[in-house]
Amino acid sequence: MNRPLPLLSLCLLLSLSSACGSDSGDPTKVTYAAALGVDLTAMNRGESGLYTLDQEVGTGAEATNGRLLEVHYSGWLPDGTLFDTSRRTGRTAFSFTLGQGRVIQGWDEGLVGMRVGGKRRLILPSELGYGSTGSGAIPPDSVLVFDVELLSAR
């Protein structure tokens, strides 16, 4: 007797379990485009798996929870694909209140402590970005690379 259904079920179960255990959203497990210049060994790693690097330390007001921040940013996928930037012609800086969950978790965590005038690189594991659902041009389980410049904190 032919039993294709149980075999198909087993294959489906194995593929789902390997997808759930996927480490594609781990910044240490992806390959970065050379043009991004990512060097995780030169960055600070937080307990959540967020990597940060101050490319320029600012001297102005500090970004703390509850402050209204205004930033310029660019975001890339590890393969070098630019998925969004506030620096496009005609766009203004992006504003949000830090620590209120109005942005992805990696930003609420990664921008704390920046000072106005500073520039910081963030490498987010997928769970601090858009997780297993993705968003628009961002595929599910994507590590994200951001360069953020803090323009104001009030």
Rank of each mutant, 00 (worst) to 15 (best):
S152C: 04
A61R: 11
T85K: 09
W76L: 05
A63T: 02
V30L: 09
S132D: 13
V71P: 00
D54H: 07
V30N: 11
D54V: 09
S86R: 05
D54M: 09
Y130I: 04
L151V: 08
L14Q: 02
L50I: 04
R115G: 08
L10H: 00
F83G: 07
G75S: 10
L16R: 10
F96A: 05
Q100V: 10
L68I: 04
T52E: 14
V148F: 01
E127M: 10
P27C: 13
E149G: 00
C20Q: 14
A137V: 09
L16I: 09
D23M: 03
T41H: 13
G60H: 05
S15I: 13
E62N: 11
L5R: 14
N65T: 15
R154G: 11
P125N: 12
G110S: 13
F146M: 11
G46H: 11
L69H: 02
P125S: 15
A34C: 03
A19N: 13
Y51C: 01
L14E: 00
E109P: 05
G131Y: 12
T41C: 06
P125E: 13
G113V: 12
L12Q: 08
P125C: 12
A153S: 05
R121A: 01
D54F: 08
V38N: 06
Y51P: 01
G106N: 04
S95D: 02
P78A: 00
S152R: 07
L98M: 08
L68C: 04
S48P: 02
S95Q: 11
V30C: 11
E70S: 11
Q105G: 09
A63S: 04
E149C: 00
L124K: 10
A42R: 14
V112I: 14
S18D: 05
G75N: 07
D108Q: 05
G117Q: 02
T31R: 12
L144E: 03
R154M: 01
T64A: 15
G80H: 05
A137E: 14
D84C: 03
S86H: 04
V145Q: 00
N65P: 11
Y73H: 02
C11T: 13
A63F: 08
L16D: 02
L5V: 14
L68Y: 06
R154H: 05
G46M: 10
T92I: 05
L128F: 00
G134H: 13
S17R: 10
F146I: 02
M114S: 12
